[in-house]
């Protein structure tokens, strides 16, 4: 099985690669359109800010490549957010950053009242609907989150989490899946989710 990690130029690519290697696979890190399109499964990692990451993706000409994918594709953290239509995280106050438009939803700044941001640490998920990504992963499982923006709970939510407000821990549409948490840093639960993506989708 050919697993390809899209080289977005973001910083957590090594951690994602190591996590997949721990499961016994040999993923390829690439920004080559042909390599990405030929993959059985694609990973879209990301940390940092949405405008910076979209700028990197656009500079590499990768947006149409990712949008053309029909194989299962997993966005991780910022990678998940980039799969939506737009993000409120923007270089220009008051305007949104256009994203890849693969999942019909938007990313908004989390409104958590007195709680601290970023939402950082281990939090529990609740599966919102039957889906292959969370097979065998029970409600209440802890995953590691680090983010200040999020997708509200909606029709594309696969799993939810709560921090001041309910938000999507995972979203999906067609062949595109996204997780707001870091499965590569979420111990056994994270490994189970990555394994599910590789085997079940």
């Amino acid at each position: 099985m050919q697993l390809v990690i899209v080289n977005t130029g973001c910083a957590n690519i090594s951690s994602v690669r190591f996590a997949i290697e721990r499961l016994g696979y040999q993923p390829v890190v690439s920004d080559d359109a042909a390599v990405i399109q030929a993959a059985d499964k694609v990973f879209l990692p990301g940390v940092g800010s949405a405008p910076a990451a979209m700028a990197q993706i656009n500079a590499k000409g990768l947006a149409p490549v990712i949008q053309s994918l029909t194989q299962p594709t997993l966005g991780i953290c910022l990678g998940m957010q980039l799969m939506t239509q737009s993000s409120e995280e923007s270089a220009v106050a008051g305007s949104n950053t256009p994203c890849l438009g693969l999942i019909d939803t938007q990313v908004k700044k989390m409104q958590v009242g007195e709680l601290r941001l970023p939402h950082m640490g281990w939090n529990q998920i609740k599966v919102a609907k039957d889906n292959p990504l969370f097979a065998g992963i029970s409600d209440g499982s802890y995953f590691y989150f680090v983010h200040g923006y999020a997708v509200e709970v909606g029709s594309h939510t696969l799993a939810a989490c709560q921090y001041g407000v309910d938000f999507s821990a995972s979203i999906g549409q067609n062949n595109f899946y996204g997780v707001q948490f870091h499965p590569e840093r979420s111990a056994d639960a994270g490994a189970a989710l990555l394994q599910n993506f590789i085997k079940n989708t």
């Binding site: 590691y144 870091h182 056994d188």
Partner: peptide
């Protein structure tokens, strides 16, 4: 750092 990243599955 890289040796740790390979084996550790927590942040």
């Amino acid at each position: 750092v890289s040796r740790i990243a390979r084996v550790i599955d927590i942040p």
